[in-house]
Design a protein around this nucleic acid. Structure first.
Lengths: 221, 221
DNA sequence: AGTGGAAACATACACCGTAAGTTAGTGTTG
DNA sequence: CAACACTAACTTACGGTGTATGTTTCCACT
């Protein structure tokens, strides 16, 4: 027997397998038994490395947050925050189950701490007060993860969006829902794409922060 | 036997009981069996009125959305949208389980349709193009529900926030997380409340939309 | 060679959503 | 009034869940 017949389990191996499984089969498919099977092991063996399922999910979340490229200090703050937002969204797109868990459990792992710290740094060095930095960070992340959630659960894919709008149109009578009806019509006939637009809200917020930044001195701490 | 010994079930009674149960015990406590028990009935009887648990949740969600006061047409658009946002947040605070379900399942009931339609109307009549209206609505709702989610899962209550920050401080060494550490210090010593601030991001977005609105004509449809 | 401890396995429990089948009560019709 | 159809309740059962508890295997060290 040259190779050990049992490759040993480890917390890291479990986390990676969990992420893989959730990526491929969806978060609902991630049960302790199924994850164990994927690792060719019995369910209870996992408990030697993670306390329980919640801790497993926390670990997966923090690992995924680690994939987001950290904002760097010293450059143009707006470009930095823009890049951070797009990186976060990209990671959330690769792991569609992640945003829900991120907002559902606040527990912070080391990666999340690092992520928050770098964000605070970029905003603070951009000239915002501490209070403004705190609020700016929250506003950005609320928007980013809110967008990721909405995008993830969208029922139709972008390319079939127009045809979907056309087929839903009868269920939105103009008499009851005039604006909804007209907007859907525009999507159906192609005069408006109707696609979710991450950039729109992001730039709105960034511009708003910029105006705040350029404001004359007042309650700054 | 003057009164019927069994008060008949109904979809509406089930929905209301579900909302009550979720409000009081949390959404995890809402199982078909427990809900049935609360209604003094067997679990399977519920299936005569709702197709399955998902449909039950959809009904609860749409009912809750119906509690949000609809934006009215004709007034100051900004005040209207501000009121809408605060009403939505208030409803999400009364039913803390709701925002998660709202973003998790896109299915639209009549109340949600009405809610969206009124929102589109207010924005459209404020002078935004259809594309801008669509994007503005999404930006606002991403922020509102993102905020509600974050607020709901916050681990400590506002009044013990400062003391919580003080106790967490040792876990955030200044060497590893300088900005996070300093921000937490400011919360601990009371020089920054650190509380989530709904208004900050909301007004940022509303101001941004206002600037868009006053912009010279271009791609407007 | 023997032994201690880590980590795997096995069993069991209470709970979940719901398919399928059965029974009770009520309103309609002959 | 009797017979019936329908609705909506109940009962049972199945395969799944997270995990507490107890047992066994195997490796690394003396």
């Amino acid at each position: 027997m040259p190779t050990p017949r049992r490759t040993p389990l480890s917390r890291d191996r479990i986390l990676r397998a969990g992420i893989r499984l959730a990526d491929r089969q969806g978060i609902d498919a991630l049960s302790m038994r199924r994850l164990a099977t994927a690792l060719r092991v019995e369910a209870m063996s996992l408990y030697n490395h993670v306390a329980n399922k919640d801790e497993l999910l926390d670990g997966m979340v923090d690992s995924v947050i680690g994939e987001i490229t950290l904002p760097a200090l010293g450059g143009d703050w707006k470009a930095t925050m823009r890049a951070r937002a797009h990186s976060a969204l990209a990671v959330m797109t690769t792991h569609p189950w992640a945003p829900m868990l991120i907002v559902a459990r606040i527990t912070v792992g080391p990666n999340r701490l690092r992520y928050i710290d770098a964000t605070l740094g970029a905003l603070r060095e951009a000239g915002l007060s501490w209070a403004e930095t705190d609020r700016a960070w929250n506003t950005l992340d609320n928007y980013i993860f809110g967008y990721a959630l909405q995008q993830q659960h969208f029922p139709v894919s972008p390319d079939e969006y127009a045809s979907a709008a056309a087929s839903y149109l009868p269920m939105i009578p103009a008499a009851s829902y005039p604006y909804m009806h007209e907007l859907s019509s525009k999507v159906a006939d192609g005069s408006h794409d109707g696609l979710p637009d991450f950039v729109f809200g992001l730039e709105l917020i960034l511009d708003g922060l910029d105006r705040l930044r350029g404001r004359p001195w007042q309650d700054r701490g």
